[in-house]
Design a protein around this nucleic acid. Structure first.
Length: 254
DNA sequence: AACTTTATTAAGTTTACTTCA
DNA sequence: CGTGAAGTAAACTTAATAAAG
């Protein structure tokens, strides 16, 4: 017999009610309920998590327990059950989050590859225009010598049109402050002007609709460039607090 | 309607034990 | 083998709420 049991028996001999109330022993000197008692309680809990007073008294009588003990067991059981439920839900949420995060990462890589490709094609187009401009510039000089004033005017207009055709790409490439044409860093495409021009490339020719599309794309782009701390995810209670960051990651999906 | 009493619940804590390094 | 930390189950406390008188 343990010290606790001896103590309990001693108290019970003096004041059985007090012993029951203040110790962890029941009236049969059991600290824990028997397997049979637990089994019956579990079965009842499965059918209803809250016990009607009449059923409580009946179950208590069947198990040789006080109704109060049955009530307390149900209280504790509900608490344990709830905490298990929370744990399960948390794990499901965590799994969903991880799946989305990896999906996000692969889409981010795909986007970067596409932007690089666009960048390369842009340079190619610019080169072609440059060659074309040099070639046409020489021809204009020859024609100017033998043409009338009227014809010169027409040629001048054509040249202006050609220059304007080239200019957008030039503007795109001249935005860098390092003086190098198209001198953007591969890992830093969040420059507003550059991105807007890329978007115009994508959505150009649709007028207001293009502007609307660009506005939809905007939050996603800025988000993509500021997600460096994604890898730091820890499975703790702050899981859902990630939503309070400046750039909610789910904006990407909107 | 405003109040007291009683019962019930969730949430948090205490107690006494077991397990394990 | 003794010991202390961690985990667990039963019981308790407290505050909130609702129903009855």
């Amino acid at each position: 017999m343990t010290e606790g049991e001896e103590y309990c028996l001693a108290r019970m001999s003096v004041d059985p009610f007090m012993a029951m109330k203040k110790s962890n022993y029941n009236k049969n000197n059991q600290r824990r309920f028997s397997d049979e008692q637990i089994k019956s309680l579990e079965m009842m809990f499965e059918s209803e998590t809250k016990l009607e007073p009449r059923k409580k008294v009946q179950l208590a009588r069947e198990l040789g327990l006080q109704p109060r003990q049955v009530a307390i067991w149900f209280q504790n059981k509900r608490a344990r059950w709830k905490s298990k439920q929370l744990e399960t839900e948390f794990n499901i949420l965590k799994q969903n989050y991880n799946d989305l995060a990896s999906q996000f990462e692969s889409l981010k890589k795909e986007k970067q590859a596409l932007v690089s490709e666009l960048h390369r094609l842009n340079e190619e187009v610019q080169k072609t225009h440059e060659e074309k401009r040099l070639c046409c510039g020489d021809q204009a000089a020859v024609v100017a010598l033998s043409s009338t004033d009227h014809e010169s005017e027409n040629e001048e207009n054509t040249r202006r049109e050609q220059e304007e055709e080239v200019r957008p790409e030039m503007e795109v490439c001249e935005k860098g402050d390092d003086g190098v044409l198209c001198g953007h860093h591969n890992d830093d495409y969040d420059d507003g002007g550059y991105n807007n021009d890329i978007k115009r490339e994508y959505f150009g020719g649709f007028g207001e609709e293009a502007d609307h599309l660009m506005n939809i794309v905007e939050p996603a782009d800025s988000c993509l460039t500021s997600s460096d701390d994604w890898g730091g995810f820890k499975s703790n209670a702050n899981l859902l607090d990630q939503s309070s960051s400046n750039c909610p990651w789910w904006d990407f999906w909107s």
